[in-house]
Design a protein around this nucleic acid. Structure first.
Length: 237
DNA sequence: AACCTTCCCAACCGCTCGATA
DNA sequence: GTATCGAGCGGTTGGGAAGGT
């Protein structure tokens, strides 16, 4: 602490030191402070909120914690097939506009969708030895994975799934219509070396002979299932 | 059991944008 | 016109958990 004649001069610094900002994982106590403050005062003005709530955190950190974790609307748990389908479709339209995509997935945060994309989708693109933004991968997604997801959703729907008939029909329309990605400028990464001709993928062969005609009861529904089953067959480069 | 690798996700960082003075 | 500030966005990283050897 500050002593002697310097105390007046350094008082402001001392206050700042006392308010030394915390970083890293949030504690339960911090969460409670933030929840209590937001529930009684609302959110916004995050920097002053952090200060008023007695949190030694930046406003930015408080905002992130609230939006991604503490908010009552936040949903947790596995991404459902419907959500996967939506993410694929919306990403094909908007690219890495995570917050925009998240708007269409109630309860999911942009951070969660971004993490999902990076950890799952990009991983599988890597397994297939192609770029996640390449047309090759997009074709795999559109012609192989999406139809399978839709079958899954439809199957679930028939036994009380989450989509109404009209919602499913909307999804079907969206996905079967070509996405304007390349025109929209979102697809900057893949325009130099993309192959427009899907024959490079061996898609015809796939459609004619391999998994396309398989018994759907094989339960290759999730992305993991799908890539586990086809990664060995579909390789690029 | 111990060590190593991979996966996943919460959190941070840097940047941009819009509002306001 | 421009400086400042708060908010939001997308990219990246650190570390714990899980799985493999």
């Amino acid at each position: 602490m500050v002593i002697g004649n310097y105390s007046d001069i350094l008082s402001s610094t001392t206050i700042e030191e006392e308010m030394e900002l915390r970083r890293g994982p949030w504690t339960k106590e911090e969460d409670i402070l933030l929840i209590n403050y937001v529930s009684s005062h609302g959110n916004g003005r995050w920097n002053s909120l952090a200060h008023c709530a007695g949190l030694k955190r930046t406003g930015k950190s408080c905002r992130l914690r609230w939006l991604n974790y503490l908010r009552p609307e936040v949903r947790r748990g596995n991404i459902t097939p419907e959500e996967q389908l939506l993410i694929l479709e919306l990403h094909s339209r908007w690219g890495n506009r995570w917050s925009k995509i998240a708007e269409h997935l109630p309860g999911r945060t942009d951070n969660e969708i971004k993490n999902y994309w990076r950890t799952r989708v990009q991983k599988h693109a890597k397994q297939l030895k192609c770029d996640v933004n390449s047309n090759q991968f997009k074709d795999v997604v559109r012609y192989l994975w999406v139809p399978r997801l839709m079958e899954k959703i439809q199957a679930d729907n028939s036994v009380g799934g989450v989509l109404t008939e009209s919602e499913f029909s909307d999804l079907t329309d969206q996905i079967s219509s070509p996405s304007p990605v390349t025109e929209g400028g979102e697809d900057k990464g893949g325009d130099s070396n993309q192959l427009e001709d899907s024959s490079n993928l061996g898609l015809q062969e796939l459609e004619q002979g391999t998994w396309w005609g398989e018994d759907l009861d094989k339960k290759l529904w999730t992305m993991e299932d799908f890539f586990a089953s086809s990664a060995a067959d579909v390789k690029f480069q």
